[in-house]
Design a binder for these strands. Sequence first.
RNA 1: GUGCCCGUAGCUCAAUCGGAUAGAGCACCAGCCUUCUAAGCUGGGGGUUACAGGUUCGAUUCCUGUCGGGCACGCCA
Length: 584
Amino acid sequence: MNTPSLPLLTQLNSLFHQAMHTVAPSERIVSTLERPKQSSHGDYAYNGALQLAKSLKLPPREVANKIIAALPENHLIERCDIAGPGFINVFVKSSAKQQVIQEVLKHKDAWGNTTLGHDRKLLIEFVSSNPTGPLHVGHGRGASFGDSLANILQKAGFKVSKEYYVNDAGRQMDILTLSTWLRYLALFGSKIALPSNGYQGEYVMDMAKLIKDKWKDTLYHADEFVLLHLDAPEEDGPEEAVEKYMDALIARAKFLLKEHYESLHQQVLALQLKDCQEDLQAFGVSFDEWFSEASLFHSGAVKKVVEELDQKGYLYRQDGALWFKSTAFGDEKDRVVQRENGIYTYFASDIAYHANKFERGFDVIVDVWGADHHGYIPRVKAALSALGYNTERLTVPLVQFVSLFRGGEKVQMSTRKAQFVTLRELREEVGNDAARLFYILRKSDQHLDFDLDLAKSRSNDNPVYYIQYAHARIHSVLSKWAGDTDSLVKSDLSLLNLDHEFNLMQLIEDYPDIIGAAAKDYAPHTLAFYLKALASELHSYYNSQQFLVEDESLCRARLALILAISMVLKDGLKLLGVSAPLTM
RNA sequence: GUGCCCGUAGCUCAAUCGGAUAGAGCACCAGCCUUCUAAGCUGGGGGUUACAGGUUCGAUUCCUGUCGGGCACGCCA
């Protein structure tokens, strides 16, 4: 029966599925219809005959004939041609193509929703930068990618939770706390230099000032007490000595500050987290959960998960440390979970964290990581396998590095010297919309060359404006028309028979499949390219035809089409975190 | 040295998880505003998909090797 709310492609696939079943009841061919590259090859092409030919021991073109003959009665297909080695080229009736406009106008921003996810619970973790300093442009890519992907997955029918893993335990936080304290002491005239492996950024001094304002001299200790029996290593000395000196300073801070150390630690963490949250919020990125690493220690989850691995016989002791036999699960070498000094490694808390993700009942778990962490994946999966979890439910899309270009020159960045461009600076320079879009304009696992000049340019070279302009143009026309847009759903769509118009109908017809493909491949860039193509076709149509024509029926039909396009543009941009202005 | 990723037009990148004649944008050349926004449109030239084999009806896509580039190889996170 006719079910108009199903996308055209779904209905056609169903017809061919039935035909295939008639021709070869025992075969299970999963071929689906595709858009051919050339329009002369029909609106859709089917390659099922090619796939079936071998097992039926018949020429493909003959099989194609049988399939066509077996197609059920329908009002969608105009005709089928057999072409090339045995493709079936399907030509769809105009009325079936025009129908999509009404569908979009009826469903509005629900057009494109798919049931791919089947309401499965999905957890996506991204950014998860150490709260030890401002987010930089690399984190921005992870934020843009993760948030856009989360939106797309949600539209594709998953129940999505977004999570940020806060590394609030461990040595890095201690180093930040100490760095802040030394800067604080300097405000009282201290001469102690910040070690080279401390945090050098200006934000550390800002925190120091803030803490001095708040706590006055509560945390002050004279240099001779801070440095008692401690010798600062030479500036270009061995790295090991510098690390040792840092640990000694941290121990000294804990000793001198007593319970105040923990307060300072908490204060520093809170300030950094707040900064990070505000930054991301302004970037249009929000999270459902900020998951604390420290909570895994406090709850005993880390200890528990290590004990469980031990009970299952996957741990052994060597050189004083506790090792996990990850080689038993395909990893290159075994990994330490507890150091000789009794402290758990980051790996240990990460096992506990991922076990926790599984225990919370997510069907699909997505970790968005920087590509430099790719070597870390096998050991996490190994540990989860050892604990009995199905690691096929965990996927780890990798996000590659970002290089900034200004005036054709690469902008030099160095974490060591704290010479990195922050996400905040980038947003201020190019704006949120350009930043969000440029980040996902490349496949995530490819290096990204971010052209700052292009992102700022108000020209046709800039894809952000190009897409937004298409949306604004449509609304400019609609506001000039000044009619009731809700009434356009009743337009006579059979009047739309130009090539441009059919091209546009085809594009908005494809929107659900684009969402599905982007969700399946974890590839938001697919959506960005689609929106560029849709904007391009709209601009082309705009230049070739007048919309506000005297013939009222034709005028309303064309307005219905462009209104539908504006809805898809707006929805797609929203998924990517980009605004859709009504005027520009 | 070992593992993972990548190599497509002069440049930046796509290519519907093996499909038909590999596509866009930039740059270059030639055109389009007394008409709904020219932040736009129309037309043109440009390729041995790094290289060599293999798998099959069919390969940019899958396999092997070579060359070239990136990343990772800690009791760091």
